[in-house]
Simulated scan of single mutants.
Amino acid sequence: MEFLRFLAFVATWGFMWRWVVKNRGSWNLFYGNLVGAAGGFIVGVVVLSITLSLLPSADKPRKQIEETAAQAVAPAVAKPETLKPPVIVQKPAPAPDKLPTFTAGQPQNEPSPPESALLPNYRNRVTESISEKTQQDKYDEAFALIRAQVGNDPGADQSPIASVMCIPFVRQAMRFPASAFLVENAPESAQRFKDQIYTISNTITARNMLGDDISYRFDCSLQRIAGTDAGFAAWKLLDLKLQKSGS
Rank of each mutant, 00 (worst) to 15 (best):
W19H: 08
E128W: 02
A206E: 01
L242Y: 04
E115P: 05
G151T: 09
Q172E: 13
T51Q: 13
F6N: 12
L237F: 11
I167R: 02
K241Y: 04
S26N: 09
A74T: 07
K133H: 06
E141Q: 07
N121I: 01
T205Q: 14
I225P: 01
F30L: 00
Y216M: 05
A93H: 09
S247L: 05
N28P: 12
N33D: 07
R147N: 12
L145Q: 14
N109P: 02
L238R: 13
A93M: 14
N185M: 07
Q149A: 12
P111E: 08
G32A: 13
C166L: 08
V170F: 14
I161M: 11
Q136S: 10
N121S: 15
A173I: 00
P160A: 02
P107T: 12
Q90W: 06
N124F: 15
M174L: 10
W235L: 04
N121A: 14
R123I: 07
D229T: 08
P168Q: 08
V21L: 09
P160K: 06
P107Y: 13
A93I: 09
D157W: 04
L4S: 13
D239I: 01
K60M: 11
L83K: 05
A156N: 09
P56I: 08
K138F: 03
G36N: 04
R5W: 01
G36W: 04
S215Q: 11
S57R: 12
T205M: 05
T82H: 06
G39P: 05
I197T: 15
G155L: 03
Y139P: 00
L7D: 10
D219N: 15
F181W: 00
P107K: 14
D229H: 13
W13H: 13
P56T: 05
F193S: 13
I50S: 10
A117L: 09
A233W: 04
A70G: 10
A93K: 13
A8H: 05
R171F: 00
N208R: 01
W19L: 15
S201P: 02
L99R: 10
R207Q: 14
A156R: 10
P80T: 01
W17L: 14
D212Y: 08
D59L: 08
E67P: 00
T68D: 11
L119V: 09
